[in-house]
């Protein structure tokens, strides 16, 4: 009997998507911060005015519990596809926890990395959609417009992070009353043949903005809490406005630990990570298990 898994490969291969630092290295970096120069690009820089939503995920805090995945599923009407479909590789997790084994196979270290949509400023998915179902909005979100999607799936092929999920069959559960009752009315229920992905909880952003507007104030840091952020027990996920002075996410991104996934591709993701810091003894004791 085969085990249905969502991840089939656990070694990091040619890249290091999950970066770790020893304490000594981290201290050295903090003293002499080395900022990587910006990558050359033929595209003009995306202007950042108004709100610029971003997310920073602290890999040092993530324990791999998966609460973010479950919260996201509940908030966004994400369907449960069942064992057979998971075996085929069609799970619908908008945020997934990647698990890597590092070190010798007899006794490897386990490292966890939550991967939502990167909301790339130079999103490779946007260029290839023939019907403009995936576009960029002025606040930096990469949007997926379900009602426009015809399902060519080129966007998924072009996403290097593979964060896009496709409704290969009618997963939505039809008219079952218990499922209808569970659904969030603020989020569209997707039909088969439509691509979906993490939206930075756009419904919460819109609700917060309208609320702030109609009561005559500006959006404050902490007004918008994404589902994954709210569920994380270790507060590993920080979300907010990068343009807001001294917002939690702006502070996180300015840390020397901050890095972007697959930076060399030039996608300029808004979702960034903070390297995991460990403090092992010289004989390797005290390393993550």
């Amino acid at each position: 009997m085969t085990l249905a898994t969502t991840q089939n490969h656990h070694r990091m291969e040619v890249d290091t998507p999950l970066r770790t630092l020893t304490l000594a290295d981290y201290r050295r970096q903090r003293e002499a911060p080395r900022r990587e120069p910006p990558l050359p690009s033929l595209y003009p820089a995306v202007p950042r005015q108004g709100q610029a939503w971003g997310m920073s995920i602290d890999l040092g805090a993530c324990i791999g519990c998966g609460a973010c995945t479950v919260a996201c599923q509940a908030e966004n009407n994400i369907p449960v596809v069942g064992r057979e479909e998971v075996k085929r590789g069609r799970e619908m997790h908008w945020i997934r926890i990647d698990r890597y084994f590092v070190g010798p196979s007899e006794n490897p270290r386990f490292l966890f990395q939550p991967v939502p949509c990167m909301h790339c400023e130079n999103a490779p998915c946007e260029v290839v959609c023939p019907v403009a179902a995936t576009v960029h909005d002025s606040e930096g979100l990469n949007l997926q417009v379900y009602n426009r999607c015809v399902g060519t799936r080129f966007c998924s092929n072009n996403c290097p992070y593979k964060v896009r999920r496709f409704n290969f069959l009618e997963y939505a559960g039809g008219k079952d009353e218990s499922i209808q009752a569970q659904r969030n009315p603020q989020v569209t229920v997707r039909q088969r043949g439509v691509m979906e992905k993490c939206t930075y909880c756009l419904q919460r952003i819109n609700a917060a903005r309208i609320q702030a507007r109609t009561t005559g104030r500006e959006l404050r840091d902490g007004d918008v809490i994404t589902a994954c952020q709210g569920a994380c027990p270790t507060r590993a996920i920080v979300f907010g406005d990068l343009n807001l002075v001294d917002s939690a996410v702006a502070r996180a991104v300015s840390s020397p630990r901050s890095y972007a996934l697959l930076r060399e591709l030039g996608t300029r993701p808004r979702t960034t990570y903070l390297s995991r810091v460990s403090n092992p003894r010289d004989d390797g004791a005290g390393e993550d298990r």
């Binding site: 085929r88 399902g151 799936r153 092929n157 593979k162 999920r165 496709f166 290969f168 069959l169 009618e170």
Partner: peptide
């Protein structure tokens, strides 16, 4: 009637 899921495609191999 059923959708492209009757094929063997998935994420990452969407084509």
């Amino acid at each position: 009637m059923t959708g492209v899921g009757i094929w063997g495609i998935n994420i990452p191999v969407a084509w």
